[in-house]
């Protein structure tokens, strides 16, 4: 069993989707616990992440790893697909009026593959829906995505709604899409992510840090 698990970790690291799928099916047939299998896949994902940090892998490799993770989940029995007690730590969505979702989907998928609970609200999400989700989940990170310049005002309204709901001091807001530092300041967010890898990195930093770190250009900004 240990050998199969090692092979699984390596296959994920090498981004060999078909081999991963074969090994997962074989492990299930042999009675290996689905959670143990998922943990093996996550170990492989960690290695992929480490290779990305070493600049030996690229964002496309992260995306491929995320696709493999989704494939593994699809093979699993339904009960094993949702890890019990995995509470959403990040609320994410494309803001109202905008339906672009590629970057947002990739970021959500990669975060989930890393074991981070994500409440993905989809596209065209109103400020009130974001606020409701934050209140329901208690998540400390809000990810707002938008690829249209009209999204800037909606991001701003959403952050104001979060403040109106009394959550601004306890929630870090990350924006992604067609954004930069000027947009960050305009909408009043804490961080902006230049791509999905940047989004994952900033979420990791926030979730690992104790308490809220206010935005400063040096400490945060564009990742």
């Amino acid at each position: 069993m240990a050998k199969t698990q090692t092979m699984l970790v390596t296959a994920v690291q090498k981004l060999d989707e078909e081999k991963v799928a074969r090994l997962v099916r074989m492990s299930l047939q042999r009675g290996v616990s689905p959670l143990d299998i998922i943990d093996g896949v996550r170990q492989g994902m960690e290695r992929v992440g480490a290779l990305y940090e070493q600049e030996r892998y690229y964002i496309a490799d992260l995306i491929m790893a995320s696709l493999i993770f989704q494939r593994v989940l699809a093979i699993m029995p339904i009960a094993a697909r949702c890890k019990p007690g995995l509470k959403p730590q990040v609320v994410m969505g494309t803001v109202a009026g905008d339906i672009h979702d590629i970057g947002k989907n990739l970021t959500a998928g990669l975060l989930m593959a890393k074991g981070v609970g994500v409440a993905d609200l989809g596209v065209d999400v109103s400020p009130q829906e974001f606020l409701n989700a934050l209140q329901e989940t208690g998540a400390k990170v809000l990810g707002l995505s938008g690829l249209l310049t009209s999204s800037y005002d909606v991001m701003r309204q959403t952050i104001k709604a979060v403040a109106g709901g009394g959550l601004r001091d306890s929630v870090q807001v990350v924006i992604g899409g067609l954004v930069n530092e000027n947009v960050l300041r305009y909408v009043g967010a804490d961080y902006c992510a230049a791509d999905c890898a940047g989004g994952i990195e900033v979420c990791r930093q926030i979730l690992n840090a104790a308490g809220k770190r206010p935005y400063t250009e040096k400490a945060a900004g564009v990742i």
Binding site: A60, I63, M64, I102
Partner: peptide, 12 residues
């Protein structure tokens, strides 16, 4: 194809 599937094709 969608970006994700295109990436998958480059590998597979």
């Amino acid at each position: 194809r969608s970006l994700q599937e295109f990436i998958r094709d480059m590998y597979q």
